[in-house]
Design a protein around this nucleic acid. Structure first.
Lengths: 191, 191
DNA sequence: CCGCTTTATGCAACTAGTTGCATAAGCGTG
DNA sequence: CACGCTTATGCAACTAGTTGCATAAAGCGG
């Protein structure tokens, strides 16, 4: 329900071709609404058919040519409508927490290494976010748009910080678990 | 890829029927891996066909009768394998952050009220988590399973706490935005 | 100017999750 | 005992997202 609106937002920020959108999803919007190029191309087609966007007239519109889109008034109106309409939060799904809960019944063999890997991934992401913050939101840049966008970035930064803390806590708990070397048994690891 | 493993975990914790599983997903496992009863029934069928679980022999197995399942050794082994195998984190999608970003281009009309509603929902969830913590993890209950399960609950509590803080911050930013009363204009809310 | 890589767009098939509805038994109550 | 309500299981159709592959032009190096 949200992908078309993510695309409308991106196109309003800057008219783009499918591939350009894909790249921007990879490095900015995708941080909280990811999409593959397939999804994007399909959705661009639908949005055009619905009259919410249109292809910018290109020099030679041929295969292998960039085809850039811009948002039409109807598209902007639809995005404004969607943004202001109440929406229930979708239920989350987190495989890592699920695995931890499973580990409580079948044993934690192998999990610790992956926890460490995830910790590293989150640290890398946090570094990237801080980089963006330093670059795009220097002190003084605080217009209305800036404030809102900064707020979104802050959520990303704080979420990564949360996960790094939690994973650190989890790993320290693992260190206190009874002999993690015995990986063979499948029974419950009860004391 | 994770629903079958969520079900295996739930069944290992306690053999159950489809409806019992649905209820338990609603109040505990579903906090980090939600599922509807349809998904659960379908998956139970698949898991049985694959020989990972089996139906417990009931008195009169008829329509409208409870049909309870238990995990077979193959199911336990599969769950242990999955738990220990490395897995990349799935890209997240958060509609609320997306809406905030959209608000930066089409205006924030209507968003504030929904932010407030979300804040309330998160506060309610946090209260529920704290209740569970008080009930299920009193000081002293710290066996291996308890520690792991408590860790998962802590993640839930801290995540809710994070969102409550962030939403509070967001709302205070909204309060400082230029006249939020002018809801009509669809142009950019630039200063 | 031939083959190789990169850029750009897209189809088809698949997996996962959601929504709406159907069926049937058990249980209470006027 | 007929009616409606709750419990319990399930099918079918749909929407969203993923994966694998196909196509074609542009740029570049030998």
């Amino acid at each position: 329900m949200s992908l078309p609106h993510a695309i409308l937002t991106a196109l309003l920020e800057k008219p783009s071709s499918g591939l350009e959108l894909t790249r921007r999803f990879d490095k900015s919007i995708g941080y909280f609404w990811s999409a593959t190029h397939q999804q994007i191309y399909r959705e661009l087609g639908k949005l055009e058919a619905e009259g919410l966007i249109r292809a910018l007239p290109a020099e030679q519109p041929a295969r292998g040519q960039k085809k850039a889109y811009e948002v039409l008034p109807a598209g902007r109106a639809e995005l404004a409508r969607w943004t202001g309409a109440p929406q229930d939060p979708k239920p989350h799904r987190d495989a890592l927490l699920l695995r931890l809960r499973a580990a409580a019944v079948v044993g934690a063999a192998g999990l610790e290494a992956d926890l460490r890997r995830h910790l590293e991934l989150h640290e890398r992401q946090l570094t990237e976010y801080r980089e963006i913050e330093r670059r795009d939101f220097p002190p003084g840049k605080d217009g209305t748009e800036d404030r809102l966008r900064h707020l979104v970035l802050r959520a990303g930064i704080d979420l990564e910080t949360f996960w790094i803390q939690w994973l650190g806590h989890a790993l320290s708990e693992f260190a206190r678990l009874p002999d993690p070397g015995e990986a063979e048994r499948t029974g419950e690891p009860r004391a």
